[in-house]
Design a protein around this nucleic acid. Structure first.
Lengths: 330, 330
DNA sequence: GGTTTAGGTGAAATCGTTTTCATTGCGGTT
DNA sequence: AACCGCAATGAAAACGATTTCACCTAAACC
């Protein structure tokens, strides 16, 4: 069933059918006849042929650091849900945090005709930034705040400020923070600075705050606590840059006899599913990752559609709110 | 840069270049000249045009029940890793356990020219089976054992038999199992039967075994334990059909003062990342989900390539092994 | 009444490949 | 010498849509 067949059956020309599909001037009468035959035959335009002519496909690329992650899964769900309604598909690339792989994927997706790209921002190296800026298809970044590029991210500074405040209210001394590398500006820098701001406000001196660093794994959090316990056995309050890190930290504390919620207060960030169901439910700054994905998809699709008619949209920046969820861990 | 340009520069015909790319008889001399110009110009065939002509694209569809899941994420990672090397991409569809949505996606992927499809099996309804059998593109199912259809799954029966045996060795009485619906033959029936076999072997009478049912969430496990505790406060051994269910169950037990590992033994299935890092590390039957994804991808791609040359491969069934990981929870 | 103007129309060109088809030349067999 | 088979070859058709082009008609304007 091709456009030709539809045209023949409806008794009009190919062009008429094409115009019907893509919007062009057409008499009401033919409109109805075409609509009718399309309904009857169940005709659907072939993606490949359309794409070959127009050069772009109805598909957006999604670049993620790893699929095996709570937040990533939620963001992807959000993107997927949104684009479905617009008839778009999704191709996923896993960068494993490797710059080289990310740049490769970016190039591949661009040249293979993706209509747009969502990349979940991690490290913001110079090369990556250049790639984001230089790419010729619409691109939206999530999780990072980059001026001049459309992006969707959470209010990390305020989240950590408020979260840390809550922890300090109950656990007054011997405070530690387990963060991540500054190469990730939001998760690294913004979250740490938010935490520091709360500490200052609570009268802490900077040198009294223990800061340890970890990667994005539970094991990283586990090891960080081990290091902390070596010097400070009686640690009282711990804030972690992510829930996953917090799980590892909790486990290390529990093993050392410092039961979270009764001997020590601990909190994470993200609001993962497991946070509510760990033995000691984890206090966390709940992030709206799914919404984040949907917002990113919305911006992307709007940009794509605008680009089709030749407009240029200003780079929209969306800062999402968060919600502190207090549970038994503090 | 099109095939035409390459032909012109190399001083050969279009057909020659096409034959060079797709394999056809061609003199050594032209081969070299073409290779040279391709290297020089960096020419890459346009996906859309190729696909339009052949009707199939270098892309495989992946149908998952939800992206927000440990095992799913790992399987997808495995698929992705394998197909990358063959130049294939991946489009993901989320069925949310809804039959209607699954059938829609199946049809959509088939008609939009996916080269093959991997579906992660859940319920095996009649309509789904008919769809799997009737589809005209290669299809591989993971997580379910369906005769006549290529599939990759774990040895659920033996896994549960061995796992339950381990639990019963330490916790001798008042045993409970939290399973899932029989509409999912592997996760529902096979796992329960494996568990029952171990119980029989240990001399349990069927009526002494408490069986509760749950969905695939932690909350489901939590609620199941609540129901169990109403009649049997002193429950001693619990086996759950998945790790996620086990997390919810652990939490409910912990809240009721029955600390896992010291007052009650509990185990799950899957080997999720969190199992090692929950406060009380969870004993589990570790499943090789990533390998499962890779195996599925391998079978699929082999089938696709075989189909191109007109062969028909027998439906390969792969039964993966598991590994019992004993941790503090029992 | 004559001249624009604008919308409606279908034939044909176009996109970048793969595939078919007819032709060539060459080595080997009668 | 005549014939067959086969690898090599390039011109041209095909794939299914969109887009251009030229033409037609009817309404609107002076």
């Amino acid at each position: 069933m091709t456009i030709k067949d539809v045209a023949r059956i409806a008794g009009v020309s190919q062009s008429a059918v094409s115009r019907f599909l893509n919007g062009g001037s057409l008499s009401q009468e033919k409109r109805e006849r075409i609509q009718e035959t399309i309904d009857k035959t169940g005709y659907k335009p072939t993606v490949a042929a359309r794409m070959m002519r127009t050069g772009r496909q109805h598909q957006i690329g999604v670049l993620i650091p790893r699929v095996y992650s709570d937040s990533v899964a939620q963001i992807v769900t959000g993107i997927n849900e949104y684009i479905q309604d617009y008839g778009y598909g999704m191709v996923i690339g896993e960068t494993r945090y490797e710059e080289e792989r990310e740049l490769e994927y970016l190039a591949l997706m661009e040249e293979s005709g993706a209509a747009g790209i969502v990349v979940m921002g991690t490290e913001l190296s110079t090369r990556r930034l250049a790639a984001y800026r230089g790419i010729r298809v619409p691109l939206v970044v999530t999780g990072q705040n980059i001026t001049g590029i459309p992006c969707v991210f959470h209010n990390d500074f305020c989240a950590l400020e408020e979260l840390t405040g809550r922890v300090l209210k109950k656990w007054h001394s011997r405070f530690a923070y387990i963060g991540v590398d500054d190469r990730d500006p939001q998760t690294g820098t913004a979250r740490r600075e938010g935490m520091l701001s709360a500490c200052r406000r609570a009268g802490y001196k900077k040198e009294d705050i223990l800061i340890e660093y970890s990667d994005f794994t539970a094991m990283g959090g586990y090891n960080a606590i081990q290091r902390i316990l070596k010097t400070t056995k009686d640690i009282e309050g711990v804030v972690c840059a992510t829930d996953t890190i917090a799980f590892g930290a909790m486990r290390a504390l529990y093993e050392a006899g410092r039961v979270p919620g009764s001997k020590v207060g601990i909190a994470g960030v993200g609001g993962s599913q497991m946070a509510a169901y760990s033995l000691v439910p984890l206090t966390t700054a709940h992030y709206y990752f799914k919404k984040c994905g949907m917002e990113a998809a919305e911006i992307l699709i709007k940009t794509i559609e605008a680009k089709m008619v030749g407009e240029l949209l200003p780079a929209k920046q969306v800062c999402l709110d968060y919600k502190i969820v207090e549970r038994a861990s503090i």
